[in-house]
Design a protein around this nucleic acid. Structure first.
Lengths: 243, 243
DNA sequence: TTGGCGACTTAATGAATGTTAGACCTGGCA
DNA sequence: TGCCAGGTCTAACATTCATTAAGTCGCCAA
């Protein structure tokens, strides 16, 4: 199969794609694989030979804690169009695994193909580089949120970000989206106990900001939620001017 | 001036540098600039034309909080040899500023020179890419630490990481180093109040793990400190693989 | 139908952290 | 020398969050 158009749109939103680069991208061969909720998509390893891109559903980067085998921390969530473990191509390996959140479909790309691109398509290489750096910008924003927001506002920030990212690729609209995360998994993301996550959810509900049943979330008061979270989406866009 | 040997060692510790790449690196022209503690080295901006590399001292990535002008969060610390804002070359701009921690010296590199490298030196380009991804791996580890460690262990983790990074480039040894951070700045890094940072420092001192006076830190019990922090340096990706 | 399981929810208690206030300590300087 | 400023340290109290325990709800399989 071929690379997802989501990713092409992701790049085009940030920089002009030359015809030659676009053609090369469209010729990338991929393997399409489906996963059920909780499945390991990419194991933590030092020798991956391919990287994956989200096609449908969500995935998370999961860090197992040493010495506490049942605990983990989630450091990133990925939506369709994200080149989830592209960094595994450049680094010696991954220090975390990638797991499916709800049912998920991904496309795997062989590293050999990426190597060929880096040797012959400098501008396209730079766009791939950029994609990994936007992930890093999101990491930084999560650090800012963790350090400066209390539980409800922290949860609100996550909801604002995920909705914005889903909306940007056309996977959500009208302030509604599907987030098949258990409260226990939310706790792994936000760094709280599951009980405290529950309090935060209740708080946002009691304020009339969201409706949340099962995996379905509706944001009733976007402005209130974004204000509470001090959400500023500019870290996601990183649109470049002409270069 | 020329690029710092610290950075060349940083790369060589991770991957073999071909002669051609090494020669190109040594021919990079830089501007050497000194800063006093607290100075802004790189302002948050959307149009930087150069990036900087640490030569001496420390710097930090500082995020100003919207609507709370006197508050900030520090999402990264940089030691000699770090290519601090290399990501500013690839992205449209920086969403944070870089400030000096203590007196600091940096070397600025024009983006035009980096562009030339990306067009003609694919392997070297990949090493630059790698350098930015190690920053991202550190971000993730900070997220893990923030989510899973209590104050003393969290502080211990920071100390273990900074010492390991300083030691790796030869800027510290014998479990001693200089960290000219005020407790108020440590609070901006760890996401605690300055008072609570003080409690954490006292706790590590009372346990006999560190000696800390002014900017000088001596780690008395490395094993105890690393165990408390559950510190595993593998995320710094310092083991060199054949590629 | 019924029982059990898993997720969600709530309450009560204690630990971790924030806030306010002020004492101490040190170095620079009049 | 004496004063001032900034940083460090401590205490008392308030808030946030973790832990334990237990109740509720919905789903599904026997």
């Amino acid at each position: 199969m071929a690379i997802t158009e989501y990713f092409i749109r992701f790049l085009q939103r940030r920089d002009a794609l030359q015809d030659r680069d676009l053609e090369r991208l469209r010729n990338v061969r991929t393997q399409h694989v489906s996963f059920a909720s909780g499945d390991v998509i990419v194991p933590a390893d030092r020798s991956a030979r391919r990287s994956c891109m989200m096609l449908r559903g969500l995935s998370a980067r999961s860090h197992q804690l040493v010495g506490r085998s049942e605990e983990r921390v989630i450091t990133a969530l990925h939506v369709p169009g994200d080149f989830v473990d592209l960094h595994g191509f450049v680094l010696a390996g991954l220090e975390h695994s990638v797991v499916a959140i709800g049912n998920a479909e991904v496309e795997f790309i062989d590293h050999a193909e990426l190597t060929e691109i880096t040797e012959n398509f400098p501008h396209l290489t730079r766009l791939l580089w950029m994609a990994t750096l936007i992930d890093a910008a999101v990491h930084r924003q999560w650090l800012v949120a963790a350090a400066s927001l209390r539980s409800s506002a922290h949860l609100a920030h996550l909801l604002c970000e995920i909705y914005t990212r889903l909306n940007a690729v056309g996977a959500a609209g009208n302030h509604q989206f599907s987030l098949p995360l258990l409260q226990r998994e939310l706790a792994d993301i936000l760094g709280y106990s599951p009980i405290h996550v529950n309090r935060a959810v209740r708080d946002l509900r009691d304020r009339g900001m969201i409706r949340w049943s099962g995996a379905d979330i509706q944001i009733l008061d976007w402005h209130g939620l974004a204000t509470l979270a001090r959400f500023d989406p500019s870290y996601l866009d990183m649109e470049r001017q002409s270069r």
